Computed example of a mutant assay.
Amino acid sequence: MEIKKFHLSLILTNQCNLSCIYCYENNKSKKRMDVDVCKRILAKHLNRPEYDEIEIDFFGGEPFLEFATMKEVCEWVWSNTWKNKYIFFATTNGVLINREIKEWLRKNKNKFWVSLSLDGCRESHNINRSNSFDKIDLKFFKECWPEQTVKMTISKETVDHIYENITFIHSLGYNISGTNFAEGIDWENEKYVRIVTNELEKLCRYYMKHPEVKPVPLIHMAIHKCEDERQKVKWCGCGEHMAAYETDGTECPCTFITPMTFGEKVLHKIHDIDFHNHELFIDEPCFNNCYLDPVCTSCYGANLLSNGKINVRDKSKCALMKIRAVFSAALKAHMILKKPVDTPENRKSLIAIKKINDLYNN
């Protein structure tokens, strides 16, 4: 039986202690969420009969700027009884995790998980994230949450080090849950297409030589889904099985679509959107004409940022998606040859591999 989960994000602060070069949250302020606002929101969601589990994510800005609030709220929740199962998360740049915070996190590591943003080796990370590499205790995060993944962003300044940065993170013992290309860049530029192709080829060869390492989603796409019957469904639970609360308690569809990123005019425009109507979120030309549509992620906040429409995909990454598909196909073909098991997924994958190569590998 499928577990029904609701993803709840509390934006504790609009401030951040870093100035990452690719940050799209341009409306930062000194606003912070009051403890009582946090408690009111959590009390509302932790007794919801339609869900089995609530995933509670402390967000920002940098959420550990408000550690005192975070600590008080968690301990209040832990001291009470709720209908729903729940777990706490926080996404952090890692810089503020001092001795006091470490002690509290270590004590509660089984019920409070932390996801670290790490953009690769020292040089690339420092370029992207305000020279913060040496301020992060990487061993601490690995010690407390050995199964937790890290998140990585690729900027135009570090794109030519994709292979080096990803393999460096693997050398630390981490898997990578997401490798996002920064927003607001013309990734269709021939220079970037050439660089990404070269970097992903090296990365593909690395995974072929190291089958014990879990491949990053960048070239480990579920290409078999391209052969599934197409359905008009949203990519995520944005505004439906997911909500983010601003510092004043205002509900937003997700952590991307908030006042930190968008002005009142844009937010007002999406106020009346029915987030339960999946058809409103479908990019019809992509759905009808692109073979990769079933595996081409669509971030509705990124769409809104790039072209002002929730449903129209940000086309600046189309070329990159095709490159990713070619190397995902190559890696999947290698895996099947190494372990030729006849499964429905593998049969679909073999068809997808041929089609992807015919369409995009030229």
Rank of each mutant, 00 (worst) to 15 (best):
M321A: 11
C286K: 07
V326S: 03
H334Q: 07
V341A: 09
K322R: 15
P285Y: 05
E345F: 12
F327Y: 15
K322D: 03
F281V: 00
K269P: 02
N303I: 02
P340E: 13
K339L: 04
R313G: 07
L267M: 15
N288F: 09
A333I: 01
A302W: 00
A319L: 11
E284P: 03
K322H: 08
C290T: 13
L267K: 04
L292R: 07
H334S: 09
S306M: 06
N288M: 13
I270K: 03
C290N: 15
A302Y: 03
M335C: 12
H268V: 02
M321Q: 15
L337P: 01
E284T: 15
S306P: 07
V341H: 04
T297C: 08
L305P: 04
D293R: 09
K339N: 14
F287N: 01
N311H: 12
K332R: 15
C290Y: 12
K338V: 08
C290I: 05
E284Y: 13
K315F: 08
H271Q: 14
S298H: 02
S298W: 00
Y300F: 09
K338S: 12
V341Y: 01
I273Q: 04
M335V: 13
N311S: 13
C286R: 08
E279A: 06
V295L: 06
A325N: 08
V312N: 10
D283C: 07
K339D: 08
E345L: 10
Y291N: 04
K339T: 08
Y291P: 00
S306E: 15
A319C: 05
V295M: 13
I323T: 00
F275E: 00
L331E: 03
